[in-house]
Design a protein around this nucleic acid. Structure first.
Lengths: 210, 210
DNA sequence: TCGTGGAGCTGACACTTGTGCACTGACTGG
DNA sequence: CCAGTCAGTGCACAAGTGTCAGCTCCACGA
């Protein structure tokens, strides 16, 4: 036992627990404001610790923001990869992708809202972190697309272009779902339109090499 | 003379001038922060007037934000409409649209940055204003698309879907251009990719009715 | 010509904010 | 078992915030 990285047992575990409670508190507060207007005291108050204890975990609010980005997007890569690899025909892949985004928004709306908001937000490091993560998604998606037989003749940069397009479509779909609110009918409408968008793009890519 | 709406001459003109200087000052400050973190005092300081004079023009910072939205997007509709209507073939329309967005970003980067940032930002009324304006663009684009012979058989909602897709593409292109910075080569790369995206979508829509 | 509406100013208020400093007390490794 | 580390506390400070009440002053309309 007791040989985890950076120290042993209880002490570190407690630290991580309050660190997590800081992240959680921040995420809740961020549902109704943006990171650059979120105060350090506000977060610590909501987390139930003294203001100065904040510095034991993060240098900045920006630092905390970056941590939130990692937390929300970091674990998603494997999920996405699996989902892309598992499906075979185009229509199935489309339905799967939209369903994946829909579930993400349904189960973790606060995270998605945070990402949508800070993607172009006022805090540089956070913006960059999100941008970098989305780029990774695009590269991964391109790699997955390259394995499809119908794309074997594609130029490398056209593939990347298509992958980035898909990523952007999914991102805008996510934020449209957020804007649709909890109303089931509205969400279904958004999902339907997202599927048609994807169908259109898939159709275009099928004739790309003409 | 002297029968402008709401009062006469010099007095009202002066008011509008300082109102404009408030908007200008805010826009400058908003290049490096988001609206929800922008202080009333900060703006009035930059505009060179007393803090309390702010209330003579706007109820809120949110109110000022909405005014900024109108200022930036209001005049754009006619431009876009003209641009769509003027061109004939698809490739020409694509080049024209991308060039229009590129010029917009080049000549009014602060406005574009503001819009990208506050589209999902922390201030509800501003978000709604931007969303509403973009919806108007989509409706207008749909109307313009409907006039094309190759779209005469399209279902109404498919047309709207396509129009919204185009709008989203242009918006993401605009923010990608901002992220590319002032480097000419990077911008050209973004514009090129935007054109290929549009080509792909146009290709897909050409086969939509199969 | 004079009275007035209203743009803009000054000063003050009650808060909130980020951060420095010295401190406590529980866990830790030797 | 004991000394040391360090997460978390309390207090203090300077600086900034939004907003209120009351003032000045001047273009305007009658």
């Amino acid at each position: 036992m007791s040989h985890t990285i950076g120290g042993t047992g209880v002490r570190q575990a407690r630290k991580q627990r309050t660190r997590q409670s800081l992240l959680d508190a921040a995420l809740v507060l961020l549902e109704e404001q943006s990171l650059s207007s979120l105060g350090l005291r506000e977060v610590t108050r909501a987390a139930g610790i003294a203001p100065t204890a904040f510095y034991r975990h993060f240098r900045d609010m920006a630092d905390l923001g970056v941590a939130l980005v990692e937390e929300s997007l970091g674990s998603l890569h494997t999920t996405v990869r699996a989902n892309l690899a598992a499906t075979v025909d185009s229509e199935q892949r489309i339905a799967g992708a939209v369903e994946l985004v829909a579930r993400l928004v349904r189960e973790h709306p606060a995270y998605v809202r945070f990402l949508a908001r800070e993607r172009h937000g006022g805090v540089r490091p956070v913006r960059d972190a999100i941008g970098g993560e989305l780029d990774r998604f695009a590269v991964e998606a391109a790699a997955e697309l390259a394995r499809l037989p119908e794309a074997s003749q594609w130029r490398r940069d056209d593939l990347l272009m298509l992958a980035r397009l898909y990523v952007d479509l999914m991102v805008t779909t996510a934020s449209a779902l957020l804007a649709a609110g909890p109303d089931a009918a509205a969400r279904e409408r958004v999902e339907g339109e997202a599927r048609r968008r994807l169908r259109l793009v898939a159709l275009g890519s099928r004739h790309w090499l003409d």
